[in-house]
Design a protein around this nucleic acid. Structure first.
Lengths: 185, 185
DNA sequence: CCTTTAAGTATCGACTCGATACTTAAGTAC
DNA sequence: GTACTTAAGTATCGAGTCGATACTTAAAGG
């Protein structure tokens, strides 16, 4: 019985409660997570292997989930012009519309019981913890493009920004999305 | 894009990462949760409907999970002497032994990146949040017996403690377990 | 008694998820 | 170029979760 037992139990319990109200609008937990991911991932990340990395599951699993969401008309696949093995996954208008009723939004009401200072502090602590946990498990942080070590702002190249890792220009929109290659700077 | 979006995303992501390493020792997430629950629930709570309330799933689901764990030799069912419809679920020696290698323990290492003050603050905040979330969803908090409004310490009745709701004497051990009837005082 | 309610089980169908095997396309070596 | 290797994605299978439904048994209350 170490001193962190209660904290771990709280995580476990919160995760379970969150999981419980994730089945809504006919979508199950993983489908919601996939929808959220593709809505927020940049063009280097919004493909099946990006989701695979994000969720930490096998490619067969994500392949199935994407096919189901495609059948529901919430996602559509577009061939990748640069690599013909790959596909780009995009939300349809129906997908974006459904995301407005994300069951995770229920937590906004719950978070209201905390003060602004508490929420701020909680956010910083959880971010720290998540980063450590992902590093420990050798997984990518999937942070914002603009917070990356490879991000160069206001390049003279014409485009507003630039990625020094992939060596491509970046739009303003790109910089505000999450990226599988992101390394916190 | 409300201001709590990032906080909700952090919860979602932490929950997913925690879920990923919950498949260990041949047990899946729900089986681990059941094992943990029965190890910590008091005698009024360690039955199928207690787990049902705790996890927020249907009785058919918990019935199946318990049967699987019984077949694995980690749990055993004992008829309830007071109510012949009910059963008491107890961990076997093998169950207790397995719990030592709970994959959730991996978080202890991750929590080490936080200072003692941060952990303390995090614990208080999460407890507050969980309580609000459970109340919002009309679910029981499953707190410690000793922290309950119905708990009476050092009764003159002979037993060390007493539950004013169920009107039964309580041992010291009872008071340190979680209870489905618990109402925070 | 008889009706209602509660605890638990049995069964079904839809889905997740890991594992395995497969297809197609890049990348690289020669 | 041809051959080998690696990567992206799909197809399929089996075990398990989970809600829904129907059922059995027992308690509880007129």
């Amino acid at each position: 019985m170490s001193h962190d037992t209660k904290l771990i139990d709280l995580f476990d319990r919160l995760a379970r409660v969150a999981g419980n109200d994730r089945t809504a609008q006919g979508l199950n937990p993983v489908q919601w997570e996939a929808l959220r991911f593709f809505a927020r991932a940049n063009r280097f990340s919004r493909n099946p292997s990006g989701l695979r990395q994000y969720l930490g599951v096998t490619k067969g699993t994500v392949s199935q989930s994407i096919i189901v969401l495609e059948k529901k008309g919430l996602l559509k696949k577009v061939p990748d012009s640069r690599d013909r093995r790959g596909v780009e996954v995009r939300l349809t208008a129906a997908g974006r519309k459904l995301l407005v009723d994300d069951p995770l939004n229920r937590w906004r009401e719950d978070l209201a019981v905390l003060s602004a200072a508490q929420r701020k502090s909680l956010e910083a602590t959880l971010e720290h913890l998540l980063r450590a946990a992902l590093q420990h498990r050798e997984r990518q942080p999937f942070g914002f493009c603009r917070d990356c070590v490879h991000f160069a702002r206001d390049e003279a190249s014409g485009a507003p920004h630039f990625c020094a890792l992939l060596e491509v220009p970046l739009s303003d929109e790109d910089s505000q999305l999450i990226c599988r290659e992101q390394a916190p700077g």
